[in-house]
Design a protein around this nucleic acid. Sequence first.
DNA 1: TTGAAATGTCAAATACTTTTTACATAACAA
DNA 2: TTGTTATGTAAAAAGTATTTGACATTTCAA
Lengths: 67, 67
Amino acid sequence: MKNKIKELRKSAKLSQEELAKLCYVTRQTINAIENEKYDPTLQLAFSIASVLNTTVDELFINEFTKN
Amino acid sequence: MKNKIKELRKSAKLSQEELAKLCYVTRQTINAIENEKYDPTLQLAFSIASVLNTTVDELFINEFTKN
DNA sequence: TTGAAATGTCAAATACTTTTTACATAACAA
DNA sequence: TTGTTATGTAAAAAGTATTTGACATTTCAA
């Protein structure tokens, strides 16, 4: 799933490691999500959105469309 | 994580099984999420929100973020 | 009251997410 | 250039989500 994490993280002048700490996950997890290796858990999605002062719906671009 | 799925599903007059089919998951998955056995994946959270005509941020109540 | 539909639950298997450790490269300032 | 910080990546292990099949209970309309 596409997301705006890298963009918003840079706007907030945070490194991947700093964002990771604020979200209580590892740097590798943030890196993998930014590079779309996999999607975060819902919990982590909320945590990242919160730290980046946005919402899950704004941060992630939902590809799901019925038909 | 708390959610409003059961409430909104009933408003939409859908059974767990019908909602499940619309989200391409099983009835047991919807049941488990409604009863908070575990959280859905981010993908499924978007899918459920979409089917129930709402947003992920409205549908789920994040205890840490508190929206 | 009866029967069907809906819901709750469980266990085993499979798939996906996160951590840990480690190493490589990139970016960048001194 | 040199050193430091930031980023990309990988593999193994642990943790979490989903499916499948099954059975029990609850709900509710006829």
